[in-house]
């Protein structure tokens, strides 16, 4: 049984007075412990889908079923409780945290809100979370703006796994990182997936990264699904025009060097 089922999702914005479909009749499923990648050029609707799935914005049409229940029917306290199971990591880890926050506060919030640990127990849980994502526990007292970009993204992952979610939406979560850091973060994500059986909705414009970590891929263009399938197979042999264009545009180290 699938973990997340998105059916006929649609969202329109008004752009210069005219309705403009950001997401148009999109359906897909994510299975437990699976990574589904959403790929596409900017404006293809990948980030809008992420925000719809997380109920940060409301769809105009369609349904979202999460863990066997109608996710769109939830509201208020019931929605906030269910959010524990569906987490997100943003692209820019600096913008994703309150600029005044410390690492400890960022990790304390989810534990406190969902009542996962008593006040006295929380520092120990925070230390455990930091260790889980490969950070020193001494980092807890530091301000978010004092630590490096890679450390910040690890803290963001720690915050996302604090509530033991079954699905994490990763919205360009490694795009802003240096390549050497990017590899480590991807390894961490894969390790978490193996250990905790977390599924990922992995949003990226980078087919190289998608090919390295995703099981399946959905390629979007102008809010619609252009093609989908096994990530390696689709990237090796894209059928849609946009899929071909994305593959052709991905820089290659070999065979394509300047003459």
């Amino acid at each position: 049984m699938s973990l997340l089922t998105v059916s006929n999702l649609a969202k329109r914005y008004r752009r210069r007075g005219r309705p403009f479909p950001a997401v148009d009749d999109v359906s897909f499923e994510v299975n437990p412990a699976e990574t589904l990648a959403l790929a596409g050029p900017s404006g293809s609707g990948k980030s809008t889908i992420a925000r719809l799935v997380l109920r940060l914005i409301e769809p105009d049409a369609g349904s979202i079923e999460f863990e066997g229940a109608d996710f769109l029917a939830l509201s208020g306290a019931a929605l906030r409780t269910r959010r524990a199971r569906l987490q997100m990591v943003f692209q820019d880890p600096l913008a994703a945290f309150n600029p005044r926050a410390t690492v400890a506060r960022v990790l304390d919030d989810p534990l406190r809100i969902h009542g996962l640990a008593s006040r006295t127990e929380r520092p120990r849980r925070i230390a455990a979370l930091l260790e889980r994502v490969g950070l020193e526990t001494g980092l807890a007292g530091r301000a978010i703006h004092e630590i490096s970009g890679g450390q910040r993204q690890r803290v963001a992952i720690a915050r996302a796994i604090a509530t033991k979610p079954s699905l994490i939406v990763l919205d360009e979560a490694v795009s802003a990182l240096d390549v050497s850091v990017r590899g480590q973060i991807l390894e961490l994500l894969l390790d978490l997936q193996r250990q905790e059986r977390i599924a990922y909705l992995f949003i990226s414009h980078d087919l190289g990264v998608i090919r390295a970590v995703a099981h399946r891929v959905v390629i979007l263009e102008a809010g619609r699904i252009a093609e989908s399938g096994d990530a390696r197979a689709v990237i090796a042999n894209p059928q849609s025009a946009i899929g071909k264009a994305l593959v052709a545009a991905t820089p290659r180290l070999h065979g394509n060097t300047a003459s």
Partner: peptide, 23 residues
């Protein structure tokens, strides 16, 4: 060399252990 190794191109080896794939 480390920079080259970290590059994830369309020809790079996969990080994902596809044994556990449930798709």
């Amino acid at each position: 060399r480390a920079l080259l190794d970290a590059h994830l191109g369309l020809d790079a080896g996969p990080l994902l252990d596809r044994q556990g794939a449930s798709a």
